[in-house]
Each structure stands twice: as C-alpha cells, then as structure tokens.
Design a protein around this nucleic acid. Sequence first.
DNA 1: TAACATTATCGGCAATGCCTATTAAAAAAT
DNA 2: ATTTTTTAATAGGCATTGCCGATAATGTTA
Lengths: 308, 308
Amino acid sequence: MLSLKDLSYLVALDELGHFGKAAQACYVSQPTLSGQLKKLQIQLGVELIEKGSKKVILTHVGQEIAQRAKAMVLQANELEAFARASKKPLTGRLRLAIIPSLAPYLMAKTGACVNALLPDLTIELHELETHELLRQLRSGEIDAGILVLPQPQAGLRHLSLWQEPLWLGVGHGHPWAQKVQVTQSQLAGAELILLKEGHCLADQAQQLCQLKSQSQAFRGASLETLRYMVSAGNGATIVPQLSMDAWISHGEQNITYIPIVSPKQAREIGFLARSGSAYWPCVEALHGAMAKVLPKNAVDTQTVPLVI
Amino acid sequence: MLSLKDLSYLVALDELGHFGKAAQACYVSQPTLSGQLKKLQIQLGVELIEKGSKKVILTHVGQEIAQRAKAMVLQANELEAFARASKKPLTGRLRLAIIPSLAPYLMAKTGACVNALLPDLTIELHELETHELLRQLRSGEIDAGILVLPQPQAGLRHLSLWQEPLWLGVGHGHPWAQKVQVTQSQLAGAELILLKEGHCLADQAQQLCQLKSQSQAFRGASLETLRYMVSAGNGATIVPQLSMDAWISHGEQNITYIPIVSPKQAREIGFLARSGSAYWPCVEALHGAMAKVLPKNAVDTQTVPLVI
DNA sequence: TAACATTATCGGCAATGCCTATTAAAAAAT
DNA sequence: ATTTTTTAATAGGCATTGCCGATAATGTTA
C-alpha cells in the first residue's frame, strides 16, 4: 500500500526541485529520500522523475501524482489537527489571515473580546491580499481568513460576519465637503485616491465609480496613506466603516465622511476556511466573539456584487 | 506520520464493526489490526474505539476520523489507478452503472461500437437507480455512471451525451390512439402507467403530468413491464426514445407512439464520474463512441428541469 | 457455570526505513 | 580540456516496525 510519507517526499521534491533540499525539508537524509522515491516509482510502475534532463523535473504523470499526493498530505495534516483539536476544543494555534484594509481596525476593535472569550486559542495573524490569501488557504499555509467574501468555491467554507458600510471620505478643501450625502450615480467618474491594485477595496471602489484602472494616478499602499493624503488637502476616497471609526476616535479632524446612498454601499466581510478544516469550531467561536463587538447595522444595505 | 494502512484498518473496523472481520477484509491477522489501531490511537492521542460497550463502536471522534480516512484511502486507490491507467490509456476495468430505464436499450445500441473502439477496456456493467448510483459513485464502488444528469455537485464531473426525446406510448384501445401529437397541457392529470418510485423517469413523468405520487395505482418494475401492460390494452405511458426504438424494431405492433409537443419533452442523458477519477479518459472515449451511434436530434428540444 | 465468541497480549521473525560513508555522475569553474 | 564542486545514486549496517501464530484474558450466551 502507498505510504503517505513517500508521497510527501514526492511533493517536497516537486516543490523544491532538488533532492538534498527536499530531503532536508522532510527531515531525512538525501539517500533515504532518493531510495523511497525509487521504491514509489516501482510501486506505481511509472517513471515519476524526468531522467536525462539536467534539472530535477517530474514527468507529466509525476506532476499529476504529486498534485494528488499534496492533497492527501494536506488531509492527513488536517486529520491530525482535528484529533488534537477534539481533545481540547478551542485551543491551539490558528493561522488567520486578514485583508489589509481590515486587519488593523478589526483587530483593534475585536482583539480584546476575542482574547477574553478564547483565552486558549493562539492566533497567528497574517495580513494578506485576497488573492494570496485564497492561495495560502487552499495550500494549507493558513487555516482561515477574514476577507470580503468572494463567490463560493469548492473546498472552501464561509461564514458571513458583517456588512461593512462604505463611506466617502473627503478633505476639507474638496468641492463636496459640505455635502450631506452622495449617490452612486454622482460618484461615476469621480476622481478618487485609491489603494494599489490587488486590494479588493480598490477593485470595489473602481467598480463603484466605473473607473478604469488606467485613469488612476495616485495609488496608496495602505489605508493610512490614503488618510494622510485626504487629510492634507482636497482629495477623496472610499473608506470602510471600521477604519473611519478608528480615524475618528484617534482625533482625525480634517476628513469629512459622507454616506453613499442609492443604493447604500457596503462590503460583505466574512470568514473563509477549508471545508475539512479542524479549526472550523474555532472559526465559529471567533465569529461569535467578533459579532458581539461589531455594530449591527440595518439590514437593508445592498452589497455591490464583487467578482474576484 | 500517519499511515494509510492504519487508516484503512480503521475504515474497515468502522464498516464491519468487528475486529476479526475487519482484519480479514484487510488481509491481516486480527492481532495485527488490533495492534495497529492501538498505535493509531496513541499517535492521534484520542480514543477512537468505544470501550466498555458490548459492541465494537467508534467514538464520535473516531467516526469523524474514519470518514476522513475513508476519503483518503479512496484517493490513494485512485492515485494508484491513475498511475496504472497512465501506462496504458483506455485499458483496465471500468465499473459503469446505468439507470434501468436506459441500460438495456443503450447497451443494445452502443455495445458493439464501444467494444470495437475500446477493445482493451473491460466494462463491468451495473444497473442502478439514480440515488444508489450517486451513492456508489461517491463511495468509490463504481467509477462512472450514465444517467439523467442531476444538478452539478461538488466532487463529481459530468459529460452530457444526449437529449433523449420522450414519447407518449398508448395502447390501441386508448382514446388518444389516433392523435398525431399531444401537448404538455393536455397531459396534465392524465392517467398513466408509470415505473415505481425511485426511477427518475417516473419522477419526470409525474412532474410532466403534474401528478401526485398517491394518485398512481399501477407501478411497473421495469419499462418492459409497462410495455406489456400498454400493449395489452388501453393504458398509456411515457416512453424514452431508445426503448421505443427497441420495441419497434422487435416487432411491437400494439403500441402507438405519439410525440409530445409544446414544449418537446426530453431528458438529458450524460456521464458522471468523480472529479479525480483515473477513468475520466475512458469516460471521454466512451462518450465519443456512443455519440457516434446515437441519433443527433434537433437542438431545439427543451428539457424539463429535473431536481434530484 | 460451562461453552463459546471475541479481543488483547506475547515472543519471534522478516521487511522496511533510516542512517553514514562512499562512489558515480553531472555542472561549473578554471 | 581539466579540475573542482555540486548533486544524486549505491552500499552496508542498525533500529524499528509490521506482521504472524500461539495463547491468554475478557466478555457473551446457554
């Protein structure tokens, strides 16, 4: 019968492309790894490693098998994690990623409550943009993510947390500074300072204003950058509510926040984890803890469908 | 690291509920199985087997783990099958299930062609109703199925084969025996002889005629039964085209076939297999071979959406 | 309690996985 | 072209593991 260990050797070799390094990554000697892979090839009756070529490359079949093997190794790890977790629920180390436009503000707001309710859960926090977050989630590098929920996808499970309203933040010198509200149609073509491409908030804002990416001259690396730019002059940007709250409570005086109406704008924040993740109970507990602290806004908010 | 072998022991014990039988199924001695399971429990640090109870029952955690283990063992088998298949494509033993209202007629029509085009593929044919077919497909007892395609589902891959037209078959004594066509609205509430519940054709026919299951007095076990009942008197039933063709060419004289129009009625026949199945190339080849022989009917056929 | 069925334990054997040391081969550098 | 260096394959030996049969312990049933 196949051995998971051998399969993991193949996965390592596929990823590192080097017998020695693969062996090191698997904590075995190079001859061991070589030998076991040879055994695996005989078991399967197939050439897995391209021979004759200069570099270590898997054959076509080998790559397909490595891919399947990777999935199996991941499942094995999750099975072990599940067993561990079942001994002491809501403990352990949760590798959690949050998108940058949310991370600092969300943690500031909910961190204390989470720690109080889940004292035995260590959260290893990562800040990742949506695309990389999804990749790492699927490959098992992280256990869960908090992000603007994308379309449901096979193998991933989600849990909606909050419809976060979006505001228009303008500097005091901006022509709209006195406005009480703006409609979506008024926003069309407006000149906004946005985050760099890759941030889902930038995508959503662009979509909202029907802008092409080309038309944007200034791109901030973080919401805090946008804050300084808007605060300093006559710029405008789209601000999610949590960051707005944070700025206000930190004494930001130079930005006016204008509600966007017709329709109200919001983004759907939620959790995402692998379907089989052992940490799902933790995710649910986190969800409960965070929901306690987040404002419960009116339900009539309409989200702009966001395709990622 | 976990061993697939040990996991398979757990799966066997879960399914057979008996150490001796499980050991036998795994081709090892009972002490071996006992010992390895004990080792597994220590590895995972969890009680897997309910102790103190009379019967062998897995703990709650044990069942969850057995379920995950089963999925992994299945994947291991498919990985091996894939390796085997990659050596000699389009060979081996394909365990194929076909729904009863299709099986005999489809095989009669396409069997020869399939054997000619895929001489090295042994097809192990099963006749299963939709529900059981799906279960066996998911659990790995069969590799592929030909059926009326249900909604797409995670983990399964499909390949549409044919829109099979549905006809109304009536006995010569039936009031409609002289009709040239019937519309769907005329069928509403009509008294039909149908297959037993569980057959998807019966479901579709019921839906088509807006009947409740209660209202049906006679239920045939197979299409051939329906044939005799209709042929003998003044009954009527819904007949898929392939069986109609077969009956005609076998000299059935006492049934009139009336087209159903507004809209035309058909059912979507197709292949279904696990997403990761090593036999997918075989399925594609089968599809090609069968499509050659099946009539290419007009594309304007509208299928009745069928939820299973 | 006796008879039976089922699971756990023991001792020993064979196979496996692993290591270090070494050799062979391929790349890179001179 | 030759040497040096890097990298993979092979060889020999040790420790562990998985396996078996025999047997003991346990639980079930009559």
